[in-house]
Amino acid sequence: MTSEISMAQQSEWSDVIPKPEYSQKVKIGKINYLPQFEEMMKYFRSVHDNKEYSERALNLTTNLLKACPGFYTGWHYRAELLDILKKNLDEELVFLSSLSLRNHKNYQIWNYRRELIKKIGSCEGEIDFLNIVLDIDCKNIHVWGYRQWLITTFNLWDQEYEYVAKLLDEDPYNNSAWSQRYFLESHSQFYKTSEFEKKNLEFVLEHCKNIDNECPYNYLKVYYCQELKERIMQGLVDIAKDKGFSRFLLQNLGFLYEKDAKGEMCDIVYKKLAKIDFMRKGYWNWKVRRTVRKNIQRTDNDIWVCRALRDNEEYYNPIYNYYKYSAPQ
């Protein structure tokens, strides 16, 4: 609120008849607004209904949006006002940024920012600004959406690799960073080329050593193809030998076996999941029932998995759904 004096007493507004929110007919469901806010809204409705494009209307949106940054009508009206009054858009960006730091989980401000940056035509300082906001909350889905739009619009791909690598280094459990990594990878000119895929797969397998981290295990499925499936299987078996099985690791084994139609192996893996993964046991049992068990030629890895899942004593840690493997004799 910029002024302590009621708007009704300001000569600037004397020609406007404030408009109440509801008619007399509506008696319930109203918000108990602060009187100053309610008054501003009454004047807003009046000038907005009259499509008044004036300096005072712009100031009114400034005050209203500070009090209520989700007020989409105010933002849209403000964008029109800036156009018509030919306002300096760089100043507008400063105003918007100051609001954004306090209200970063908000659809309206990030959409308004897209529209504003489109008009300004430059993304100078934007990435630095986003890094600050992501420092406050590195999983803010609105900021990531805006960041992807910015990168695509202004071709900012190159510098983003480093940023995502830094985030994953700081916290490999950050799914937003993994998602951004896929965004970069899938837009690379090398996407789905052999060497590129191989290199990236090794990076993901390295992260799969955190067997309680869902993110790299979800990501692993990106690389499933004829050429790489053996490497994925070998990677998983190596990790299991070292760290044991988690429900994420087992789910990926099941995925590979299903793709290869190795029904017998699916059966073993899903039965184990049904045993250790309490929340989803009904689902895994459904998968067991659906599996067509046919005998297959087992690889050495398959034989190892069978023995590890069938024969060994279990160590069950409910926090990670661990199934700790101890080497068969």
Binding site: I28, G29, I31, L34, F37, A67, C68, G70, Y72, T73
Partner: peptide, 20 residues
């Protein structure tokens, strides 16, 4: 919440049908 809404919900003035 159908009858009257507290001041804390001012930010939802742009989504009043949701509250209902």
């Amino acid at each position: 919440g159908l009858l009257r809404l507290p001041r804390g919900l001012t930010s939802l003035c742009s989504g009043q049908p949701w509250l209902v």
